[in-house]
């Protein structure tokens, strides 16, 4: 669907200052039907990448290519892309309804279709009551919802969403994530940026990670986790015994009544035997399953 090839982008703060690279030789690919999370800390280059994809800014070097199924020229491609900006920017004096009609008409959607889709999505996202209000009176969450309706009004095949979950309350976040999953199941390709790893982990199978303008990882979340963790277990046992902390055992937490050990998978039986020999009481056992956030933090270091 999208190929981002060896992209370089530099900026200058002012005329005299030295240029800095916001993106340096970044390449990744989004395939048809994927739901891809685009991760990176603030300033990693996510929004810059999206702006380049949509043609708002030009890269210094590198190439962007879209699947032929999206169209051959820029206008055809854009008519099949739904874009949601980092902060949805609207005209403050227009009402929500006017704004949706405005963007819908520019995407060549018939009035009746705009009206039907707007009614459906506004109800689903619970802003149907506010459509006649001026956008300047909208809250942050309402703007996000209106932004999503605007991105979906022309029923695009490919959604590019820049931080769609930022500024939403927990219920709104869940609603958005459910919608993204549902759209993906219906065959839409979704590429969305976020700096909140848990959101991406929850709904995506593939992830692209940027750090300081460089590509850190591209691939499935499962293999990222598999490649970067040593399988093991956590054993919480009573503190009245001591287990020899050899190279496969580490004490992670020590309290008055219990100790928490991290044990490598290979040393599991040895640890259990020693515990039973010493008459220790097992309080809790769990698998060592780090979150994507912990892994990313680890590979960034």
């Amino acid at each position: 669907m999208l190929e981002f090839q060896n992209i370089y982008k530099s900026f200058k703060n002012d005329f005299w200052s030295k240029q800095f690279f916001a993106l340096e030789d970044v390449s990744f690919m989004v395939r048809r039907g994927e739901l891809v999370g685009f991760l990176g800390a603030n300033g990693a280059g996510k929004t810059t990448s999206i702006k380049i994809i949509l043609g708002f800014i030009k890269q210094n070097k590198g190439r962007i290519s879209f699947a032929e199924s999206l169209g051959r020229n820029k206008q055809d491609i854009l008519s099949r892309i739904g874009y949601f900006p980092e902060r949805p920017f609207f005209y403050p004096y227009l009402t929500g309804r006017e704004m949706i009609f405005y963007t819908g008409k520019l995407s060549d959607v018939k009035n009746a279709d705009i009206s039907d889709r707007m009614t459906y999505w506004a109800k689903r996202l619970q802003i149907d009551h506010a459509l006649e209000r001026k956008i300047r009176d909208y809250s942050k969450g309402m703007l996000q919802r209106l932004g999503l309706i605007s991105a979906l009004i022309h029923d695009p095949d490919f959604l590019i969403l820049d931080e769609p979950l930022a500024g939403l309350d927990p219920l709104g976040r869940k609603e958005f994530k459910d919608i993204l999953t549902e759209l993906n199941r219906k065959g839409k390709t979704i590429f969305f940026s976020s700096h909140i790893v848990s959101d991406v982990e929850e709904i995506c199978k593939k992830v692209i990670v940027l750090e300081n303008g460089k590509l850190l990882y591209e691939g499935s979340i499962d293999s990222l986790i598999k490649d970067h963790i040593k399988p093991g277990y956590y054993f919480k046992i009573s503190s009245d015994i001591n287990i020899n902390t050899q190279n496969y055992v580490r004490i992670v937490d020590e309290r008055e009544d219990s100790k928490l050990y991290e044990v490598d998978a290979l040393g599991k039986m040895q640890f259990i035997n020693e515990m039973m020999e010493k008459g220790g009481e097992l309080i809790e056992v769990s698998q060592n399953k780090p979150t994507l956030e912990e892994i990313i933090y680890k590979i960034q270091k």
Binding site: L54, Q75, S79, P85, F89, F90, Y91, T103, L106
Partner: peptide, 14 residues
């Protein structure tokens, strides 16, 4: 400056 143009230029509008 307020980036409202992003909402328009991300559509098939030259």
């Amino acid at each position: 400056e307020s980036r409202t143009c992003y909402m328009i230029l991300s559509r098939p509008v030259k």
